[in-house]
């Protein structure tokens, strides 16, 4: 579904675990798109056709899934990365992941075309979309969040959900780093907080006040020092 101009969200509505995916349209050369976290091909528990649903969702928005030129992975967990190889092998989409998770990604059978570090990502031959890649460890060592300052959009992966956060008990997780990462992004000017899962809420938090309330809730819950 379209969230804003050139911004689309594909909110996971199945029963099994899978992530939300997001898309920024027409931002690369030849009007190709950026996809963030394509998720599972099929869910692990009940074989729900996650990728098929994503592709249908993209088509229903009048976009061509074959025109996805770049896939960013917020982190290297199967429920976020599995379908990346589909786009990479079928339509030659480039796959990018944080440098700290490239080896794990390779061990899981993927090959990253591009390595991410903290910094700016300019998309389009006229550099019409400027994104900030923010290294946000805590849920995993090379977790990133993606900030689009012009549109005040923060794509949070599994750092932040509605009134909750990603797990820190998985390999490479760290509660201390999670608190630091949340503290950093909470200072950003955000109108759209786009979460990696629809846990108890679609995971699309819209509006400056709503986003602020979510950060305040988390800061209080996690005793994050102001």
């Amino acid at each position: 579904m379209q969230l804003a101009k050139n911004l689309y969200g594909y909110i996971w509505q199945g029963q099994d675990n899978n992530c939300n995916s997001y898309l920024i349209s027409n931002c690369l050369d030849q009007n190709r798109h950026l996809l963030i976290d394509p998720g599972h091909i099929k869910t692990k528990g009940t074989d729900e056709p996650a990728l098929e649903l994503l592709l249908k969702g993209i088509q229903n928005d009048g976009l061509d899934p074959g025109a996805i030129g770049l896939t960013l992975l917020t982190h290297c967990h199967p429920d976020h990365i599995e379908a990346a190889s589909f786009f990479q092998t079928r339509i030659n989409t480039k796959v990018a992941i944080h440098r700290a998770e490239a080896d794990i990604y390779q061990q899981m059978g993927g090959i990253a075309d591009l390595l991410l570090d903290e910094g700016d990502l300019k998309l389009g031959t006229q550099e019409s979309v400027l994104l900030d890649i923010i290294h946000s460890p805590g849920h995993s060592p090379g977790h990133i969040t993606i900030f689009w300052p012009k549109e005040k959009v923060l794509i949070a992966g599994d750092l932040i959900f509605y009134h909750s956060t990603g797990r820190t008990d998985l390999p490479g997780g760290s509660l201390a780093q999670m608190k630091q990462s949340i503290k950093r992004v909470s200072s950003l000017d955000v109108d759209w907080l786009l979460c990696g899962h629809p846990y108890g809420h679609p995971g699309v938090i819209q509006g400056r006040d709503e986003v602020k309330e979510n950060f305040q809730f988390l800061s209080h819950q996690m005793m994050i020092e102001p």
Partner: peptide, 17 residues
């Protein structure tokens, strides 16, 4: 990559792969 519309300090080609 720049010609394809992908550039910036956050991104580097994973040449080793």
């Amino acid at each position: 990559l720049k010609k394809e519309g992908i550039s910036g300090s956050a991104i580097k080609p994973n040449l080793k792969a």
